[in-house]
């Protein structure tokens, strides 16, 4: 077994108006260090739920199974501890924080994880230097830093802001939940560049997507198909191309 990310028999449910609703129904997934894996699958199959459970969202109750991350029991950790340990989730729908300055938020977050990782905090000057370098690399305008977190951002700006946060927080596991959806080709490129810039033997990514195009830029090591709360099929990069042409129908039959 790899000791990077190891998800085993994961079951999770949510309280849907008083009745428990099982969403993850035995997810098994291993991601070795240094690899990029893609998850594809029809709407409602539990992809976002998996990403939330990995990041520690409290509304989901894990009923059985385990997740180990770099040898630690991920499920026992608070969301901020997971962030400090290197888990980053780019949200499918990034959240607005009215009145909270984007740069200030970013700096608070960066320093919180630096503190937790035992690194020195960045002062205002050092932070500004780093963030300017990051925005430049992602061809983003610095103007976005002055606005309030995600407030009044276009769909594309929100996604780019997620990539900026990812770049600044230097995760070892990045989970991207449909970060490419609704983006034009240029923006797609930025997302891919953001992930590729982080690639190293100690960094892995779990990329949830519906589109072959992002995967063209990322060249994933593995592609998984999720259906009805399970990984039902796995393959190499060519699997994504197959799905692009044929759709999910054949895998769904397998899962039933």
């Amino acid at each position: 077994m790899s000791d990077f990310l190891n998800i085993s028999g994961l079951h999770a449910r949510i309280d849907a108006d008083g009745a428990p609703k099982e969403i993850l129904r035995g997810v098994d997934l291993v991601i070795p260090p240094g690899e990029v894996h893609a998850i594809m699958g029809p709407n409602g199959s539990g992809k976002s739920t998996l990403s939330y459970v990995l990041a520690g969202r409290e509304d989901y109750e894990v009923t059985s199974g385990s997740v180990s991350f770099k040898g630690q029991d991920l499920l026992a950790m608070e969301p901020e501890e997971r962030a400090a340990a290197g888990v980053f989730l780019a949200f499918q729908a990034p959240i607005e924080l009215p009145g909270v300055n984007n740069a200030n938020f970013l700096r608070t977050a960066v320093n919180a994880v630096r503190r937790a990782r035992g690194d020195a905090e960045l002062d205002a000057v050092a932070f500004l230097k780093t963030v300017r370098a990051a925005t430049k690399k992602l061809s983003m305008s610095d103007e976005m830093l002055k606005r309030n977190v995600n407030v009044g951002f276009s769909g594309g700006e929100k996604k780019r802001n997620e990539v900026l946060q990812m770049t600044m927080l230097q995760p070892s596991l990045a989970i991207l939940d449909e970060t490419d959806s609704g983006l034009d080709v240029d923006a797609l490129r930025i997302v891919a560049d953001g992930v590729n810039a982080l690639r190293s033997p100690t960094f892995s990514a779990l990329v949830i997507t519906h589109h072959q195009r992002l995967l063209d830029y990322l060249n994933p090591d593995r592609v998984h198909v999720m259906a009805r709360g399970r990984i039902v099929h796995s393959g190499g990069a060519e699997l994504a191309k197959e799905i692009d042409v044929q759709g999910y129908a054949s895998f769904l039959a397998e899962a039933a």
Binding site: A55, G56, R57, E58, D59, E78, P79, E80, R82, A83, A84, V87, F88, L89, F91, P94, I95, E96, L97, P98, G99, V100, N101, N104, F105, T108, A109, V110, A112, V113, A116, N148, Q165, L169
Partner: peptide, 30 residues
């Protein structure tokens, strides 16, 4: 308005403690 669960989770996912998250949102509000 309310400080939503979504906002808290978003902040905590970025590494902020609950107290820091509330502080940030409240200071933004004020």
């Amino acid at each position: 308005s309310k400080i939503s669960e979504d906002q808290m989770f978003y902040c905590r996912q970025r590494g902020l403690s609950e107290e820091d998250a509330v502080g940030l949102i409240v200071n933004g509000f004020c």
